[in-house]
Design a binder for these strands. Structure first.
Lengths: 139, 139
DNA sequence: AAATTTGCTTGCAATTTGCAAGCGCAAATA
DNA sequence: TATTTGCGCTTGCAAATTGCAAGCAAATTT
């Protein structure tokens, strides 16, 4: 088991027991915003996660029911990683992190459309994206 | 300097460069929801942070402009830790983490009032709390 | 049949975290 | 005034986590 004990009964603390590291939420980000779905996809992202760390984080996310593995439709050599409903429900968290980040950091131009869509109508953005992700995960 | 280089220009990544650990957001949680404002207050919380970790996280949060230190009105031996506007702007992130956490974990009864207030009218909750925090920080 | 792709594992060094003790200054107590 | 206690840390060291580089089996492509 990779699962460790909860530090307290506080929901913030329990959530950080899962995501309180530099990588887990970046994997979720890629699943949500880049539609990444294979091991190789995650390795391609800009931050260049080490392969052993990627493997261990994917395992932990799966054990926590945030993502699930399934057969890739194209090839038996590939693995398809998909968000569960529990994982899709992290969308609002990712959105708020995005908004805070764009407020206090320089953000590349190519991300402006997404940020603007979020700002224009947050509820609608969540609605549309959630449905898309649920369809992608067969939910 | 405790500050380290950014892994990428992505706002999520940049944000996690600051908060991507098990403790930083718990300190923010205490500043926001428990009105903690001294070193001793932070040490009292349920998760029992080690004193050297607390010191290093407070330093990093200060260097990143999330919190600021000032003289305590009661005593020269105490230090007053306060959120900056940048820190107060994390309230929506903390709220979404709270909501996700209460959906997927057992949460103690004493936290239900806050969760219910958030669910009833999120925008109003943010409005009220932000003003309270700004007043507390003299903004 | 050989080379390449894919999703990992393994070993080891570097960094971060956690525990326990201690320390200087301020404030309360005797 | 002398002593003890409270507060905000620092220091040393062990344990755990992260990061780097290499390697590897099964599937796929050439």
């Amino acid at each position: 088991m990779t699962t460790s004990k909860k530090r307290s009964s506080c929901p913030v603390s329990s959530t950080l027991d899962i995501f309180g590291d530099k990588w887990s939420l970046l994997i979720i980000r890629d699943l949500i915003f880049s539609k990444s779905c294979t091991y190789g996809d995650f390795q391609k992202s800009e931050e260049k996660i080490a392969t052993n760390i990627l493997a261990s984080k994917l395992k932990a996310l799966e054990e926590n029911g945030i993502i699930k593995k399934s057969r890739h439709p194209e090839s038996k050599a590939k693995v398809l990683y998909q968000l569960t409903q529990k994982g899709i429900d992290l969308l609002p968290v990712l959105i708020e992190i995005n908004l805070w980040g764009q407020k206090y950091f320089e953000v590349p131009k190519e991300l402006e459309p997404i940020i603007n869509a979020i700002k224009k109508d947050k509820a609608a953005f969540i609605e549309v994206q959630s449905k898309e992700l649920m369809e992608a995960s067969g939910l």
